[in-house]
Design a binder for these strands. Structure first.
Length: 424
RNA sequence: GGAGAGUUGGCAGAGCGGUAAUGCAGCGGAUUGCUAAUCCGUCAACCUUUAAUUCGGAUGCAGAAGUUCAAAUCUUCUACUCUCCGCCA
């Protein structure tokens, strides 16, 4: 979240940022509440000061064995007054809390202005669109022929959108996860984590999933827990409430998790196979960094995610998201899109974002500034590195042979113990 | 599921109705001098004020409600942590 003080002192900038983000959030209510709050505070603080003063004089009198009855009676009315104003204050603060959680992060000045996906800027293309001497099959057909997934039977377990990987498909899924984790740990110096897949409401609120995206999450009401939509949630919350020594920054984590998304409102879109599912696997990269370096760290985060696609030899492009496409919590974001030969389009496999102190303010994650000795909010970043389903789509389609077999890229050979996936 | 103990500043830790000791670490300063020590100040977030990183005020003891002139301290509820028992992969 943003701080109320920041909104108050930079109202025009925040409003401009909201406009660029295509947000209809109204901050004038918030500013009105802010004034009310400060008026109440002033009132209550004067009364409290009086209370403290008289209270200590009562204490003095009693110590000296004197009668303090007069003061005590007077304090009774003051106390009641305080209670009344405090109630009012609490109401105003509740209104502020309700509203401020719906205000999205500000947009970084480097972000191109635009209102929808047409405003995104392609800043890079890597590799070539693969060329086929035959008509390439789509991943569904390939999966069926090679018995890699079973979408019909998975319905018996959990319904549509919960993929079941079978045989070499299951092994390939596991190989991709292992390959990516190993790569980030050994080549990019991330620390590997295996986090819980459920998180409580506070954790969800800290990273910005709640309150706005409640409907997109699976919930377990008996235990007040939610299924995580990304490992970003548990991993970012790992340092909640901590003050991290400046010398330990940046902290970099790579975490595998299953991800659960209800995808409410997107029914009928991308219903084919693996392209949009309720449960999927992802290796997530999360960084806790010094505020001065966060944009540099965003660039390397992007490079780290790209390295996976390069190692797998898959054609992709990088988008710099325009202001209107930025997610709620992000100040700047790059999307990585891999090429699907059968779909004949690019599919998003990663978003790399800088959240600046939007998440760390909610989660109260700080570092100790060496020169001032004061604690300040750190910046958080994260990016997928990568999500498997669409990666699987691109991989199968890109490396298919005319005879229907899949010739795996060399990077996966050690993880699969084979070079070619053949028709069983 | 049952029983018990606990949750205080960055950390450690006292206080158990009169308004948060003390130690360590950090930051600032002073002083003596030299593989460092000693002393002083400061040490979340908030409001107000200021030329100011200034003065002041209020808050703050897991969270919420209550009793009281006054709550870290008493009462109730909630959350979390630990220990033991039971059940289970």
């Amino acid at each position: 979240m943003l701080s109320l003080k920041y909104i108050r002192e930079n109202t025009d900038y925040v409003q401009d940022s909201l406009t660029r983000k295509q947000s209809r959030v109204n901050i004038s209510n918030l500013l009105e509440f802010d004034i009310q709050r400060r008026n109440c505070l002033k009132e209550v603080e004067v009364l409290r000061a009086e209370k403290n003063q008289v209270s200590s004089s009562i204490a003095e009198l009693k110590k000296g064995g004197e009668n303090a009855q007069e003061d005590i009676l007077a304090m009774r009315t003051v106390s009641n007054k305080i209670k009344a104003v405090e109630t009012e204050l609490r109401k105003v603060e509740e209104s502020i809390a309700n509203d401020i959680y719906y205000v999205p992060n500000i947009v970084h000045s480097s972000v191109p202005v635009g209102k929808d996906e047409t405003g995104n800027v392609v800043i890079k293309k890597w590799g070539d669109v693969p060329d086929f001497s035959f008509k390439p099959k789509d991943h569904l057909r390939l999966g069926e022929d090679l018995k890699l997934f079973d979408f019909k039977r998975s319905v018996k377990m959990a319904g549509a959108g919960f993929p079941l990987y079978t045989g070499l498909g299951a092994k390939l899924e596991r190989a991709l996860i292992n390959f990516m984790l190993d790569y980030h740990v050994s080549k990019h110096n991330y620390t590997e984590l295996f986090p819980p897949f459920l998180a409580h409401a506070e954790a969800m609120q800290n990273t910005g999933q709640l309150p706005k995206f409640k409907d997109d999450m699976y919930e377990i009401p008996e235990d007040a827990l939610y299924c995580i939509p990304t490992a970003e949630v548990p991993v970012t919350n790992m340092h909640q409430g901590e003050i991290i020594p400046e010398s330990e920054l940046p902290i970099k984590y790579a975490a595998y998790s299953a991800c659960f998304r209800r995808e409410a409102g997107s029914y009928g879109k991308d219903t084919k196979g693996l392209i949009r599912v309720h449960q999927f696997n992802k290796v997530e990269l999360v960084k806790f960094v010094h505020p001065d370096n966060s944009y540099k760290e965003l660039e390397t985060l992007l490079e780290n995610a790209e390295a996976i696609l390069q190692a797998l030899g898959l054609h992709y492009r990088v988008l710099e998201l325009c202001s209107g496409e930025l997610s709620f919590s992000a100040a700047k974001c790059y999307d990585l899109e891999v090429w699907s030969p059968a779909e004949n389009k690019y599919l998003e496999v990663s978003s790399c974002s800088n959240f600046e102190n939007f998440q760390s303010r909610r989660s109260n994650i700080r570092y100790r500034n060496k020169s001032t000795g004061k604690s300040e909010l750190i910046h958080t970043l994260n990016g997928s590195g990568l999500a498997t389903p669409r990666l699987m789509v691109a991989l199968l389609e890109t490396y298919q042979q005319e005879d229907g077999r899949i010739k795996l890229p060399a990077a996966l050979h050690p993880f699969m113990n084979m070079e070619i996936i053949a028709i069983p």
